[in-house]
């Protein structure tokens, strides 16, 4: 029972990190209808910047973190301006998605090559301290991740509700022509979306590699890729979905890993496949994801 509780708490805190990454995928999808397969790569890239600034340049953690977040946001903007823009005009959504796959191959190869066999710390301001909740000990860093995720998700949600940005974002994706006639500055909307999404990915990345995980190594790319099933499970155009999907993936992963001995008949690597099996099941029942909306085609 104790084990179960601790797994649940752990799953939620990991899930919150996935939710942040998935939220980035959703933000970009909502404003452009493009699935950004390079999102996990951006996470690794930004986290590598933080780690390099922290270890290599010996900058204080917060400076390194801000540098990583900022540089990634700029990279996101650059991708939007330079690489994705030609596709918006043609409304070539799927082609743009595949383009981001090419981009992810480039970024992944370079970051993997850079990381090599190292395990890089991206700074651990909270160290390895734990606190005890419900008689399970939980790393403080995980709690901080959860708290940060909740704050960021709430802030984003409120911002969408209160500002015109949410409306503009939806309009930009639904009907770019009409939206621009209505005075929505499309390029600004997509640019801000890419910047926010990339920044969120790096925040998530920093938490993902901090205690109890050892640091940034080449496996982080595969781990962060789980944001894709998270976003899809929740529904690509739903911010609520990103949270639910992130938690679902986090819990699935932590539980299947935690009970791998009971699940031994499924093999030791089952926990890696589990989120994708969940995704397949969800898509079978709801092709648009749990909270996604399905559009009716007109003739």
């Amino acid at each position: 029972m104790i084990e179960f509780t601790s797994l649940i708490v752990n799953g939620i805190s990991v899930g919150a990190i996935y939710a942040l990454v998935a939220l980035g995928v959703v933000i970009i999808f909502k404003s452009t209808e493009i699935v950004n397969f390079a999102h996990p790569s951006l996470l690794v890239f930004g986290t590598l910047i933080v780690a390099t600034a922290y270890n290599g340049l010996h900058l204080p953690f917060y400076v390194a973190a801000i540098a990583g977040v900022g540089i990634s946001a700029l990279l996101g903007v650059a991708i939007d301006r330079v690489l994705v823009r030609p596709f918006y005009k043609k409304r070539a959504i799927i082609a743009a998605g595949i383009m981001t796959i090419g981009l992810s191959i480039v970024i992944d190869t370079l970051t993997t090559n850079q990381i090599g066999a190292q395990i890089l710390s991206a700074g651990n301001p909270l160290g390895s301290s734990t606190i005890s909740i419900l008689s399970t000990s939980i790393p403080l860093a995980r709690l901080a991740a959860l708290a940060t995720a909740i704050v960021l998700l709430m802030a984003f949600y409120l911002w969408l509700q209160r500002s015109d940005f949410g409306v503009a974002m939806r309009a930009a994706a639904d009907d770019p022509e009409t939206a621009s006639l209505m005075g929505v500055r499309l390029s600004r909307v997509t640019m801000i979306s890419w910047a926010i999404a990339s920044a969120l990915a790096v925040v998530a990345g920093i938490f993902l590699v901090s205690y109890p995980s050892a640091g940034l190594d080449v496996s982080v790319g595969a781990v962060s890729l789980q944001a894709i099933p998270a976003a899809i499970i929740g529904g690509l155009d739903s911010t609520t979905g990103a949270v639910v999907g992130g938690l679902a993936v986090g819990l699935t992963q932590v539980l299947t890993l935690g009970y791998q001995h009971q699940l031994a008949f499924l093999g030791l690597s089952f926990s890696q496949a589990a989120p994708y099996i969940l995704m397949l099941l969800v898509l079978l029942i709801r092709p648009a994801g749990l909270f996604g909306t399905k559009e009716v085609s007109r003739v």
């Binding site: 699935v35 998605g97 894709i228 093999g267 690597s269 496949a273 989120p275 994708y276 995704m279 898509l283």
Partner: peptide, 13 residues
Amino acid sequence: GLATLSLVFIGVW
């Protein structure tokens, strides 16, 4: 495409 993504991971598993 997204659904078939799961086949890859199920396959490796």
